[in-house]
């Protein structure tokens, strides 16, 4: 019964998402594109935070590198979009392997510091390596060609691009979801609750953390590859730590204990940002206050709090 209601709600949401370009203005098409991309970014972050228990403050490194990879391939090689995305994922995976190798060996305090520091290292590279990254201005002036797979899509059309993003995010989410529910995902949850017991069951916890970190980085890279053509620029801001703060906040906002939590968080975050920036510049201040309140009072996030409340009502 409960799962039937859930499936019905999910089907309704998906139908609504598909219908957005036909029922809403371009303004909302843009907003929903952003929600989906950032939702995927946050969901990839939650694989390491909510599931494995590793708090990274440098997840933007993979997001940003993904966006630079797609921008570079579009500028220099004009490959089909799908190929760009694969390059983004590959580049981010490689970076995640290096940063992860150095960071997952130590406890979570070190991990948080190191991911932040290495994230800022990537930012520094993008800033200083002008000949490739164009420094603080970032890479712009690229345009999307074909999609790939012989599909004839006008990617320059925001509605078409929205549907492409929706499709890719949906596929990526299903893959992520399966990983979360797999035996491997179960081990990740076990590691969060009690790493010691996992290693005394004969598993190298470090390896599992690293694999999770690389998977998360890869999907963040995919999200980055999607954001570059949407923003029409790949700039150092996408690599900055304030960008790393966004998935953290989205996951906490929606609920780190639920697969859909980061997506709910992303929706609330983007809508709130749009609303708040319409009358104040100090969006980050509001962000900080919300984060503090969520951490102190609503650690289970909106979804968790809602579900708890629903359980209470049913009693």
């Amino acid at each position: 019964m409960k799962s039937k209601i859930l499936m019905a709600i999910l089907a309704l949401v998906i139908a609504g998402l598909i219908a957005v370009p036909w029922i809403a203005s371009y303004f909302y098409v843009f907003i929903f594109t952003e929600i989906l991309i950032l939702g995927l970014f946050a969901a990839s972050f939650n694989l390491i935070f909510g599931y494995t228990g590793m708090l990274s403050f440098g997840h933007a490194a993979f997001f940003g590198v993904g966006s630079y990879a797609t921008a570079l391939v579009l500028i220099h090689l004009q490959w089909p979009f799908l190929a760009c995305l694969l390059v983004s994922m590959g580049a981010s995976a490689l970076l995640a392997l290096v940063i992860g190798f150095l960071s997952v060996r130590l406890n979570e305090v070190y991990f948080a510091m190191l991911t932040l520091a290495f994230g800022m290292m990537v930012f520094a590279i993008a800033y200083q390596w002008r000949s490739v990254t164009n420094g603080s201005d970032g890479l712009a002036g690229f345009s999307l060609g074909s999609f790939g797979l012989g599909l004839d899509l006008t990617l320059g059309n925001p509605s078409v691009y929205y549907h492409v993003v929706l499709g890719i995010v949906a596929i990526a989410s299903i893959v992520l979801y399966v990983i979360c529910r797999s035996s491997f995902g179960m081990i990740l949850k076990a590691i969060r609750q009690n790493p010691e017991r996992v290693s005394f069951a004969g598993l190298n916890v470090r390896t599992y953390r690293l694999v999770a970190f690389v998977i998360a980085g890869t999907f963040a890279g995919l999200a980055g590859g999607l954001i570059a053509p949407f923003l029409r620029v790949a700039s150092p801001e996408l690599l900055h730590w304030s960008m790393s703060a966004e998935p953290v906040l989205m996951a906490i906002l929606g609920g780190t204990g639920y697969f859909l939590g980061p997506f709910v968080g992303s929706a609330v975050f983007v809508l709130l940002e749009t609303w708040i920036t319409s009358f104040t510049e100090s969006w980050m201040l509001v962000l900080g206050i919300i984060l503090a309140l969520m951490v102190i009072f609503f650690r289970k996030g909106l979804l968790g709090t809602l579900i708890d409340w629903w359980m209470e009502v049913k009693k």
Binding site: I179, R181, M186, I187, K189, A190, Q193, R197, A201, L203
Partner: peptide
């Protein structure tokens, strides 16, 4: 133990480690 899992899942984690299922990314546990 793993406090947030069910009693059965606690043992399943150890068993999937033992049998090498823990390396499976695309099954449904």
């Amino acid at each position: 133990i793993f406090p947030e899992m069910t009693v059965q899942e606690n043992v399943e984690v150890v068993l999937s480690a033992y049998h090498g299922h823990s390396r499976k990314l695309f099954n449904i546990a």
